[in-house]
């Protein structure tokens, strides 16, 4: 258990990358990219986790002296999620236009670019 969170994070990232490589549809590839990014959320939060600690939101039940998990990685993760959503939106918009102008979203059939 002591490294399980990290391994899950790494596995998710690689799964996403493999998914892009074998994708037959650009929308599928964009979604796989966002799955890959989910690995980074899991890694960051796993790093900041502490057993039997509360969330870093102080109030009536959590006093500043209570042990809490790391708020820094949570802030980084929030940034990461925003990046993920917005980059996904951009790439989806590009896929949509590609479908419109190429008439396909299969990367094997796209042929506008050759070395």
């Amino acid at each position: 258990m002591s490294y399980y969170g990290y391994f899950v994070a790494g596995a998710i990232m690689l799964t996403g990358a493999v998914g892009i490589a074998r994708s037959r549809n650009l929308v599928h590839a964009v979604v796989c990219l966002s799955v890959s990014q989910a690995g980074t959320y899991v890694l960051l939060l796993s790093i900041g986790y502490q057993r039997h600690a509360a969330a870093p939101v102080f109030g009536s039940t959590i006093k500043p002296s209570t042990k809490v998990v790391d708020p820094v990685v949570q802030a980084l993760c929030l940034t990461d999620i925003v990046v993920s959503a917005t980059v996904t939106a951009l790439l989806l918009a590009l896929s949509l236009q590609i479908a419109k102008h190429h008439g396909t979203t299969d990367p094997d059939e796209l042929s506008a670019l050759r070395g």
Binding site: Y41, L45, S46, Y49, A53, A55, V57, C77, L78, I81
Partner: peptide
């Protein structure tokens, strides 16, 4: 998962 990791802010996002 994020909730279980005590990250309600991230879970909400």
């Amino acid at each position: 998962l994020f909730f279980a990791l005590q990250a309600p802010d991230v879970a909400l996002s």
